[in-house]
Design a protein around this nucleic acid. Structure first.
Lengths: 218, 218
DNA sequence: ACCGAACCAATTGTCGACAATATAGTAGTA
DNA sequence: TACTACTATATTGTCGACAATTGGTTCGGT
């Protein structure tokens, strides 16, 4: 389960989540215009609700808005991907460092369990690991940092955009086993409470991961 | 001049900027409740405008909102400060690295000029340097990274919160000259296009800066 | 044919009113 | 007195209508 606690109560929240999913999953195309009136009939809510959702999406860097003109879904470019992964490298590197420092022993143990369950799946050739498992792994470490700013930035913003790139470019292929090894080393560093190494390995891991996607865009 | 391009056209924008300033500068206290009706009379705009402004402030981590209850200005805590500076260290470190890589020669030259103008001020004992000058320096480097995600995160979000801490805790005292030396070394690394060193020095610089403020909160 | 100005339709920005929800206060009972 | 259920009030959530702005289109002039 990679969905987060996001307690959606209000209609505005629900519309926001729905709209975000539709954008990330490509049901609304990258670069498309977001007409407020159109969306308000489509999702059966008032324009105010749509407006609020679009504002939130803008804060998440999933749409761009110009005053008195309107909003468009961001378009996926090679430069955008590079910039996104540079930020990710920076933030997740810090997350790994902090996780090595702040995770409880129990959490570290759970992380090791997660890793070995992934090992079993990789061994059996389950492709399930690829998306769901990778996401779980990264989430676990980010949450382990115990830094709420970091958590919010990655969970509410960056990761959705990352997923948008992954989904719409067709996600990575044969990187599973090598990524698994990288995960293993990161967990090792965290288990040893080696902050510097954890950060360095995570940064490398994300750089590799970027190279893997980047080729699809050239 | 440390104000950014922020072309405010719409009334919603203006209200947002005004409200943000009032919060950062402490005219609205940390932890205070933000009543929509009250603010709408105070700023002479409709509740919808206030609502939009509050939403944006929430995205900037200046305000926390609970559904059906309301919004409060964030409160300034020691933990919050530490978390904020951890993120800043991570992002600005990356910014320095990218600036060393992506700044044009002209931009590097301008940065050196800025530094020597600061030197003159420090020599003359102008306390002006402290806030305005420091901000200029950091902005210059962040913009030099040419990474729009990075720029947006720092300029629209983190820096305002940083300033809020600085203003409301009374800003640093005798750190001017030592901070100047740190700036000098960072500029040197950028001039040499030494990405790794630039990142490392910037991270240290921010850590020192945090220690300086942190003592005020204990 | 080309350029500019004045209109026009469509979209966004703003507003006030109504509905739904939470909090505080009151009354009632054990 | 302490606790619960209920009610009243104030605040937020949602909506539809009106105002303002944009971009395109048409028309006229050179």
């Amino acid at each position: 389960m990679h969905t987060f606690k996001e307690t959606a109560v209000t209609a505005s929240d629900k519309t926001f989540f729905q709209l975000r999913e539709d954008i990330v999953e490509g049901k609304i195309l990258a670069g498309a215009k977001l007409s407020e009136t159109e969306l308000s009939t489509k999702y059966a809510v008032s324009r105010a609700i749509i407006r609020e959702a679009i504002n939130r999406l803008e804060s998440s860097h999933l749409v761009e808005r110009k005053a008195n003109v309107g909003a468009r879904v961001v378009s996926l470019t090679k430069e955008g991907l590079v910039e996104l992964y540079q930020v990710r490298e920076s933030l997740e590197g810090m997350a790994a460092r902090l996780a090595a420092k702040n995770m409880t022993d129990d959490e570290v143990q759970d992380l090791n369990k997660l890793l070995s369950s992934h090992f079993d799946e990789v061994k059996d050739g389950q492709s399930y690991y690829q998306e769901e498992g990778d996401v779980d792994f990264h989430y676990r470490i980010v949450l382990g940092s115990k830094n709420n700013h970091l958590i919010a930035m990655l969970m509410n913003g960056i990761y959705h955009l990352v997923r948008m790139y992954r989904v719409q470019l067709g996600m990575a292929g044969p990187r599973v086993t090598t990524a698994f090894d990288e995960h293993r080393h990161i967990v090792q560093a965290i288990s040893n409470r080696d902050e510097e190494l954890a950060e360095m390995l995570m940064r490398r891991h994300i750089t590799y991961s970027r190279n893997n996607i980047q080729n699809k865009l050239i």
